[in-house]
Structures are given as C-alpha cells and as structure tokens.
Design a binder for these strands. Sequence first.
DNA 1: CTTGACTCTCTAGTTAACTAGAGAGTTTAT
DNA 2: ATAAACTCTCTAGTTAACTAGAGAGTCAAG
Lengths: 143, 143
Amino acid sequence: MSGENLLKIGEIAKQTRVSVGTLRYYETLNLLQPIQRRENGYRYYELDAVKVVQFIKKAQSLGFSLEEIRQIIEVRNYGKPPCELVQNLLDKKIEELTTQIKQMISFKAELENYRETWRINNLNVTYKKTKEICPLIANLKLI
Amino acid sequence: MSGENLLKIGEIAKQTRVSVGTLRYYETLNLLQPIQRRENGYRYYELDAVKVVQFIKKAQSLGFSLEEIRQIIEVRNYGKPPCELVQNLLDKKIEELTTQIKQMISFKAELENYRETWRINNLNVTYKKTKEICPLIANLKLI
DNA sequence: CTTGACTCTCTAGTTAACTAGAGAGTTTAT
DNA sequence: ATAAACTCTCTAGTTAACTAGAGAGTCAAG
C-alpha cells in the first residue's frame, strides 16, 4: 500500500508549517482539495499541494483575503474559465498592489522622518543635558 | 453655549467618514480621547482629532493593527517617553515596511507575468479560433 | 497485538474590528 | 414647546481566520 506519490495531511502540515486544523479549514473554503480520500477517510494530497499552501501564505502576507485567494486559485484550477473575468480580476489586484506599494513607500518615508527628527533631538539632548528626555515627541505633528 | 472650538462626535464622524460607533470603539482602545466631557456626558474633541482618525485609517490601510497604531499614538502623546523604546518601535515598523514593500513588488511582478501570459495566449486563441477559451490557465504554475 | 501517533468529524471558543439595537437623556430648529 | 436629530451606555451580534477539544477510528513499530 501507499507506494504512490501522495501526501497525508500531516506531511503537508510539516512541510508548510501550517497546522492540520488550518489545512482542513482551507478545504472548507475551497482553497485546497485533497486529490483523493481513501477508504479510511484520510485525505491524500498531491505534492503540488505544498506549493498551493505556500502560495496562500504568501498572498495572505501581502494583504489578500482568503476569499480573494480562493478566486485566484479557482480561476487557476478552471479548465476553461471566462478569460475576461479572469483578466479583470488580475488587473484589479495588480492595480491595488500598485497603489498600496506607493502608499507604503510614502508612509515609510514619513516614519523615517519621525525617526530622523528624534535622532537629531536626541543628540541635542545629549549635548545640552536637557532635563527633557524626548521633548520633540510632544511637538510631533501627525501625518 | 458652545462658543468654543470643539467638535462633537458626529462632526468628527462626518469629517472622517468613520462611524460614530467606530469612534467610540476607538476610545475604548485608547486610540482617541475626547478632550472633555460636559455635564450632558457628550464627548467633545479638539480639531486635531480629525487628523488622528485620518492617521489611524491610513496606518490601518497599510496593514498596521489598531494595537500597533495605539502604541505609535501613545508614544506621540507622551510628554517624556523613553526614547530608546520609541526609536526601536519605529525602527521595527520601518524595517517591516521595507520588507513588505519588497515582497509586494515581486508579487506584483509575478501577477503581471500571469497577465502577460494570458494576454499572449488570448491572442493566439483569437487567431487560431481554438475551442479552448483559456487553455493556458490549466498549465499555470503557482508561484 | 498493543501502544502511540495520526486521522476523522463536529462543535465550540478566540481575536480583531466593527455594527446594530434597545432604552434613555439632550439639543436644536421651527 | 415639541419633534427630529443627536448623544449616551450597555449588551449582543458579525466576519475572518483560526485554534482547541471531544470522541472515535486507523496505521505503524516493536
């Protein structure tokens, strides 16, 4: 038995560092389907399942919801999906990403500005031995 | 009465497009405090409260949790906070942002790659009048 | 052949970030 | 002076993404 190339849920879990419970949860959301169930009821997955899980995690870390990820994966699993819808979906995601990246870059610049202000002030404090530890903070203007 | 320069919760809500309920919720999380409560129990906010709410929304849209935002704001409200902690907090955020931005850029490139693949394939389909609508999708390899 | 590690299903709990609604007092516009 | 609009508190419900646990069957190693 089991001379085949399939993985049980625990092996997927180990390889992806995603809990068994979470993998089963993904299944209920149609994010990840085992390729077969055997008589014992066990889930058996293709090797590719590991990649799917990794994709999910990656997309998730970038702010995609599981529902959005499901749509992307669904589209990918479809033999013959409506191409226009597919493209529109992707286009939307790409545009969102573009905007988000821009925002993050400018937000980062703002935080760096805070930091720089503090750093300079800290130097002053050191030299002048002011009683205030971080006097600038009170004067900070929110973005 | 009310010749002063303070805003009631509804005005903050209107200006920020954040619901009154959410503003009160923010208060329970120590994200936003009215500058005073009058005999009637009403909350009265400084004009700056609008900026605070906008800051919250912005930071939130960039993936910061309300708890993280609370920490940033807390630090900002402190008269004399421990500068090192403050700086470490900021440094951590900036580093996180840097990583995230990098990831998003490469993820975006990957999605663009998908799109491009599809676009080319679509052209082929059009020219060849293949029966398959989007044959490439089945062959897509997950990232 | 038994023990420990896995697996199953199903129900319920958790956290974050809200939203909704009841019941009551307050302000404002006419 | 009264109705509409606003405010208050408090409790409870919602969604997303999980996590935990009970109760039971299955597999693998010694």
